[in-house]
Deep mutational scan, measured.
Amino acid sequence: GATAVSEWTEYKTADGKTYYYNNRTDESTWEKPQELK
């Protein structure tokens, strides 16, 4: 099967917290998305 390329990108805020942003859905989350686990 084809490997899905994750749409999630990991970013850090100014105070060093990590969050994740999805370019396709324009969604952001503090929790690590399922695709990255």
Results as ranks from 00 to 15, higher is better:
residue 32 K to Y: 05
residue 31 E to H: 07
residue 1 G to R: 00
residue 14 A to T: 09
residue 34 Q to L: 12
residue 1 G to P: 13
residue 12 K to H: 11
residue 23 N to K: 11
residue 8 W to K: 01
residue 12 K to Y: 10
residue 5 V to A: 14
residue 5 V to R: 04
residue 36 L to M: 11
residue 21 Y to Q: 05
residue 18 T to K: 06
residue 2 A to S: 13
residue 19 Y to N: 03
residue 34 Q to N: 13
residue 7 E to R: 01
residue 23 N to R: 08
residue 37 K to N: 15
residue 17 K to D: 09
residue 28 S to N: 07
residue 20 Y to K: 00
residue 8 W to A: 01
residue 16 G to K: 01
residue 15 D to I: 00
residue 25 T to F: 03
residue 37 K to G: 15
residue 10 E to V: 09
residue 34 Q to E: 15
residue 11 Y to M: 15
residue 33 P to C: 01
residue 10 E to I: 09
residue 14 A to W: 10
residue 8 W to F: 03
residue 34 Q to T: 14
residue 17 K to S: 08
residue 10 E to D: 02
residue 2 A to R: 01
residue 14 A to R: 05
residue 12 K to L: 11
residue 7 E to D: 11
residue 10 E to R: 01
residue 34 Q to A: 15
residue 15 D to H: 04
residue 17 K to I: 09
residue 20 Y to R: 00
residue 3 T to E: 12
residue 10 E to W: 05
residue 27 E to Q: 09
residue 36 L to R: 01
residue 7 E to Q: 08
residue 9 T to G: 08
residue 15 D to E: 09
residue 2 A to Y: 11
residue 13 T to R: 03
residue 36 L to K: 04
residue 34 Q to Y: 10
residue 30 W to P: 07
residue 13 T to F: 04
residue 22 N to R: 00
residue 19 Y to G: 04
residue 15 D to A: 06
residue 21 Y to W: 06
residue 32 K to I: 10
residue 20 Y to M: 00
residue 31 E to L: 07
residue 32 K to Q: 08
residue 7 E to L: 07
residue 6 S to Y: 10
residue 21 Y to V: 11
residue 8 W to V: 01
residue 36 L to N: 08
residue 22 N to A: 01
residue 33 P to L: 02
residue 1 G to N: 13
residue 12 K to Q: 12
residue 10 E to M: 08
residue 34 Q to R: 06
residue 7 E to K: 03
residue 37 K to E: 15
residue 5 V to W: 12
residue 18 T to S: 10
residue 31 E to F: 08
residue 1 G to W: 14
residue 25 T to E: 03
residue 35 E to S: 11
residue 17 K to N: 08
residue 12 K to I: 13
residue 9 T to E: 11
residue 14 A to H: 10
residue 33 P to V: 02
residue 14 A to Q: 10
residue 17 K to E: 09
residue 21 Y to G: 02
residue 15 D to M: 03
residue 30 W to N: 08
residue 30 W to I: 07
residue 23 N to L: 07
residue 12 K to S: 08
residue 18 T to G: 03
residue 28 S to K: 15
residue 20 Y to W: 15
residue 27 E to N: 04
residue 16 G to S: 01
residue 31 E to W: 06
residue 29 T to F: 07
residue 13 T to Y: 03
residue 16 G to E: 03
residue 35 E to T: 07
residue 11 Y to H: 13
residue 24 R to C: 09
residue 14 A to S: 11
residue 28 S to E: 11
residue 8 W to M: 01
residue 12 K to M: 11
residue 10 E to S: 05
residue 28 S to M: 15
residue 3 T to Q: 14
residue 25 T to M: 02
residue 28 S to D: 04
residue 1 G to S: 13
residue 24 R to A: 14
residue 24 R to P: 03
residue 28 S to A: 13
residue 29 T to K: 06
residue 6 S to M: 09
residue 23 N to M: 09
residue 29 T to N: 04
residue 1 G to Q: 13
residue 25 T to P: 01
residue 29 T to P: 01
residue 15 D to W: 04
residue 24 R to S: 14
residue 6 S to F: 08
residue 8 W to E: 00
residue 8 W to N: 00
residue 31 E to N: 07
residue 18 T to I: 12
residue 9 T to F: 10
residue 10 E to N: 02
residue 33 P to D: 03
residue 25 T to R: 02
residue 34 Q to D: 15
residue 33 P to H: 01
residue 20 Y to G: 00
residue 10 E to T: 09
residue 2 A to D: 13
residue 6 S to T: 12
residue 20 Y to Q: 01
residue 14 A to V: 10
residue 7 E to Y: 09
residue 7 E to H: 08
residue 13 T to M: 05
residue 29 T to A: 08
residue 5 V to L: 13
residue 33 P to Y: 01
residue 19 Y to Q: 04
residue 29 T to L: 06
residue 34 Q to F: 11
residue 30 W to R: 05
residue 16 G to R: 00
residue 9 T to R: 10
residue 13 T to N: 09
residue 22 N to P: 02
residue 3 T to M: 12
residue 35 E to A: 12
residue 32 K to S: 04
residue 36 L to H: 08
residue 34 Q to M: 10
residue 23 N to V: 10
residue 22 N to K: 01
residue 36 L to S: 05
residue 20 Y to N: 01
residue 19 Y to V: 07
residue 4 A to W: 12
residue 22 N to T: 00
residue 36 L to Y: 14
residue 31 E to Y: 07
residue 5 V to H: 13
residue 33 P to N: 02
residue 14 A to M: 08
residue 8 W to L: 01
residue 32 K to P: 06
residue 33 P to M: 01
residue 12 K to T: 14
residue 25 T to D: 03
residue 5 V to F: 13
residue 6 S to R: 07
residue 12 K to G: 03
residue 13 T to V: 03
residue 36 L to D: 08
residue 27 E to I: 06
residue 32 K to T: 07
residue 12 K to W: 07
residue 9 T to Q: 12
residue 35 E to D: 12
residue 37 K to I: 15
residue 2 A to L: 13
residue 13 T to Q: 04
residue 6 S to I: 08
residue 27 E to K: 07
residue 34 Q to W: 14
residue 15 D to Q: 06
residue 18 T to H: 06
residue 31 E to C: 10
residue 28 S to L: 15
residue 17 K to G: 05
residue 30 W to L: 09
residue 16 G to F: 01
residue 4 A to K: 05
residue 3 T to F: 09
residue 22 N to I: 01
residue 16 G to Y: 00
residue 36 L to A: 04
residue 24 R to H: 12
residue 16 G to L: 00
